[in-house]
């Protein structure tokens, strides 16, 4: 495209629109917005080829606060709309912002298929484990026992694990981060952007009004080092305040366990090394739910293959090369025709 490259470097503020942000004070979405602004500034992403597409929910207001192109659509359908946009103009950088109800309940099918097809979209799921905009009903990621207006005695159904869902759908990129982690989250967003294909990022987000502290047992500063393991490709899965805890394969079993280096004969050599191209490992890491095992943060799986939009356009080019278009009038006259004379 014939665009003059701006001389001035874009700052995070340049990605903010002139509209007042209308989330509740203290909402985790503010922190995510800030991270997105920072990540885009780090990438120097052009404003005019960046598009944010969202569904419905608190998170879905996101595009209004971006100075890029934006489309606030309908509940659950953002991945489907984004698929059409990306196919129609592959030059666009398309980001999809979804909530947990949006992505995994009403729009579960579209999330599944956008991931399965591997459309080059950055799919950000803000997981607050609650329906905020409709005033606090439990969501498909709410823990069993969540008391809400619709489940006054507590919810009885099992939540879905978003990362396992994405991997099950055939995701080639999954990552997890926390809204307030302003060092980690922008890095995850940049990795998602760099990955060509569907990039699924689960962002644990605090809803201060309806589900305050839903993830505090994992995300609070004092417990985070012991409850999270930050995974990095090629690095050992060590964590804990003193860096002595590690995750290893339990001997004689197909499962992970937490061990302490230096205890019971455990050495650093026993600790697993993260391989982000290993799907089996990704499935094990994704299954760590914060019970006996820490919650995995970071790029859990990244193993790119050709994206759907690239394959579609490649096929179209092949067809055009093999059987080029003929003049439209000739197309209509191809095959069996007959002439009636005056």
């Amino acid at each position: 495209m014939n665009v003059q490259t701006p001389v001035a470097k874009l700052t995070p503020n340049d990605y903010a629109s002139d509209q007042d942000v209308r989330w509740c004070p203290g909402c985790g979405d503010y922190a995510i917005l800030k991270s997105v602004h920072k990540a885009l500034a780090d990438l120097q992403a052009p404003l005019d080829t960046t598009v944010f597409i969202s569904g419905i929910g608190c998170a879905a207001r996101f595009p209004y606060y971006m100075a890029t192109y934006g489309f606030h659509t309908i509940h659950g359908r953002a991945p489907a709309i984004a698929t059409g946009t990306k196919l129609a103009n592959p030059d666009l950088d398309v980001w999809v912002v979804m909530g947990d109800g949006d992505a995994l309940s009403i729009g579960g099918n579209h999330t599944l298929h956008a991931i399965r097809r591997n459309v080059d979209l950055n799919l950000l799921m803000f997981n607050n484990a609650i329906y905020g905009l409709t005033k606090g009903q439990y969501s498909p990621t709410s823990k069993v026992g969540t008391r809400s207006p619709s489940t006054p005695q507590g919810s009885v159904d099992q939540p879905v694990n978003a990362i396992l869902f994405a991997l099950g759908a055939g995701a080639r990129f999954v990552a997890r981060s926390v809204d307030t982690n302003q060092k980690h989250l922008p890095e995850m967003l940049k990795r998602a952007h760099a990955h060509k294909g569907a990039s699924f990022v689960e962002i644990l987000q605090n809803c201060i009004v309806y589900n305050d502290g839903a993830f505090s047992d994992v995300t609070e500063r004092d417990v985070a080092p012991d409850r999270q393991v930050v995974v990095e490709h090629g690095k050992k899965l060590v964590f804990g305040k003193d860096g002595k805890k590690g995750v290893r394969m339990k001997p004689g079993a197909l499962e992970l366990e937490v061990v302490t280096i230096g205890e019971n004969g455990v050495t650093e050599a026993d600790i697993l090394v993260h391989d982000e191209k290993n799907r089996a490992m990704a499935l094990l890491l994704a299954g760590m739910d914060g019970g006996a095992l820490p919650v995995a943060m970071g790029v859990i799986y990244c193993n790119p293959v050709e994206s759907y939009d690239v394959a579609v356009h490649k096929q179209m080019r092949e067809v055009i090369e093999k059987t080029p278009a003929i003049e439209f009038n000739k197309l209509l006259r191809r095959g069996n025709t007959w002439t009636v004379n005056t």
């Binding site: 309908i74 489907a80 709309i81 059409g84 946009t85 129609a88 103009n89 099918n109 579209h110």
Partner: peptide, 20 residues
Amino acid sequence: FQAEDEIAAVCSSIGASYAG
């Protein structure tokens, strides 16, 4: 584009119209 359902079919078309 053979979509995953009727809703995705119309939505992808809207997304394409949005892109021109």
